[in-house]
Simulated scan of single mutants.
Amino acid sequence: MAYASALLRDPARTYREIDLAGRTAVADGPALVQLLYEELIAALRTSAWAAENGRYAVKSERVTRATAILFALENGLDFERGGEVSTTLARIYAGARRRVVDASIGHSGAPFRHVADELDEIAQAWKQARAA
Results as ranks from 00 to 15, higher is better:
Leu7Ile: 09
Arg16Ser: 12
Ile69Gly: 00
Ala94Cys: 07
Leu73Thr: 11
Ala66Phe: 05
Ala51Val: 02
Ala57Gly: 15
Ala116Tyr: 11
Glu39Lys: 01
His114Tyr: 13
Asn53His: 13
Asp10Gln: 15
Leu20Trp: 09
Asp120Phe: 07
Ser104Ala: 14
Tyr37Ser: 04
Ser47Asp: 05
Val26Cys: 01
Gly106Cys: 11
Phe79Thr: 01
Ala103Asp: 08
Ala103Cys: 11
Asn53Lys: 03
Glu84Met: 03
Ser47Tyr: 01
Gly83Asn: 02
Leu73Lys: 06
Gln124His: 11
Glu39Ala: 09
Ala57Leu: 14
Arg23Thr: 06
Asn75Phe: 10
Asp102Gly: 00
Asp10Ser: 15
Phe112Gly: 04
Ala6Glu: 12
Glu39Gly: 10
Gly82Thr: 03
Leu40Ser: 00
Leu44Thr: 01
Arg98Tyr: 15
Ala51Ile: 01
Leu89Lys: 07
Gly109Gln: 09
Gln128Glu: 15
Arg9Asn: 13
Trp126His: 09
Ser86Gly: 14
Gly82Cys: 02
Arg16His: 14
Gln124Phe: 06
Tyr3Met: 14
Arg65Phe: 06
Asp102Ser: 03
Trp126Val: 00
Ala48Trp: 00
Gly106Asp: 12
Arg65His: 10
Trp49Met: 04
Leu36Ala: 02
Asp120Arg: 13
Ala131Met: 06
Gly54Thr: 02
Ala6Gly: 08
Glu61Met: 06
Arg55Thr: 09
Ala116Gly: 07
Ile105Gly: 10
Leu89Ala: 14
Tyr56Met: 07
Asp10Leu: 14
Ala96Tyr: 06
Thr64Glu: 03
Arg98Pro: 06
Leu20Thr: 05
Ser104Thr: 04
Thr88Leu: 08
Val100Cys: 12
Ala68Asp: 15
Ile92Asp: 06
Thr14Asn: 04
Trp49Lys: 02
Gly22Cys: 05
Leu70Gly: 03
Glu118Asn: 12
Ile105Thr: 14
Arg13His: 08
Thr14Cys: 02
Arg81Ala: 14
Gly106Gln: 10
Lys59Gly: 03
Val26Gln: 12
Trp126Leu: 01
Leu70Val: 04
Pro11Met: 14
Tyr93Phe: 14
Ala90His: 04
Ala68Gly: 15
Val26Ile: 13
Leu40Pro: 02
Ala48Asp: 00
Ala4Gln: 15
Pro11Ser: 12
Thr24Ala: 11
Thr24Ile: 09
Gly95Ala: 04
Asp19Phe: 08
Ser104Asn: 10
Ala90Ser: 15
Ala132Leu: 10
Lys127Asn: 07
Ala90Thr: 07
Ile18Phe: 14
Ala57Cys: 09
Trp49Arg: 05
Thr88His: 11
Ala72Ile: 00
Arg9Cys: 09
Ala21Cys: 03
Gly29Glu: 11
